[in-house]
């Protein structure tokens, strides 16, 4: 799902950085600061887990593959800003050491996968939790994947409209290629992953995690 370097032009990447930068500062202060020291082991472990699940490619019919994001869990446990901080760190490591995504597109990827997805997932979880805790966790994972994918698609479609030399594929092609696997495969797996791991984390009774 990561947008790689070179696919988006500065008119998109720079405003994304401008939006993301204050949020990074806020998130780091709130979730990596002294007041959050107790929850750091759990946040760190789930961030590491998110890094791992993002390296596991899920084959999709049609000859391509996709991957989970895995940070909506942090939004459910500690709020969307925690997920934003964690995913931003994961994306930074991937961009610097693995060439996945990229530094110029870090703001866009972080806002899509680290903020939009977890916020939507967190809202779905809040709305559905009174009905079913597990169902709400599944819905959170599924919805977060759709929101993140939609935002990435929106950035690519906007880029195609602004300057197709950066991203030449028309939005209709991109939309189908991105949303069909997301709706049918990745979202479902993300939902299952979120429900199962959330249940395990809650049962384990870690410090800083509500039972």
């Amino acid at each position: 799902m990561h947008v790689p370097d070179g696919f988006l032009s500065p008119p998109i990447t720079l405003p994304a950085y401008a939006v993301a930068a204050p949020l990074w500062a806020w998130a780091a202060r709130r979730h990596f600061g002294r007041s959050a020291a107790e929850s750091l082991p759990v946040v760190g472990s789930l961030t590491a887990l998110a890094f791992v699940v993002q390296t596991i490619m899920i084959p999709v019919p049609g000859g391509t593959s996709t991957h989970l994001v895995g940070v909506v869990l942090l939004a459910l446990l500690h709020g969307p800003l925690a997920a934003f901080a964690a995913e931003s760190l994961v994306l930074l490591v991937q961009a610097l050491f693995y060439g996945a995504g990229g530094v110029t597109v870090l703001g866009v990827n972080a806002l899509a996968m680290g903020l939009a997805g977890p916020v939507v997932g967190w809202l779905a979880w809040k709305a559905l939790r009174p009905l079913s805790a597990r169902g709400a966790a599944f819905a959170a994972g599924w919805a977060s994947m759709q929101a993140a994918t939609l935002l990435v698609f929106g950035a690519l479609a906007l880029q195609h409209r602004l300057d197709p030399s950066y991203f030449p594929l028309p939005p209709a092609v991109t939309f189908t290629a991105m949303m069909v696997p997301s709706l049918a495969v990745t979202g479902v797996v993300e939902g299952l992953y979120t429900a199962v791991v959330l249940s395990l984390v809650r049962r384990a009774g870690f410090r800083g995690v509500e039972a």
Partner: peptide, 21 residues
């Protein structure tokens, strides 16, 4: 490579935790 990435993420949180302690 994934292990190195894990170490990088772990190092960040480990350093933060140690600092706050």
């Amino acid at each position: 490579r994934p292990l190195a990435g894990l170490l990088a993420v772990g190092a960040v949180f480990g350093a933060l935790f140690a600092y706050h302690r």
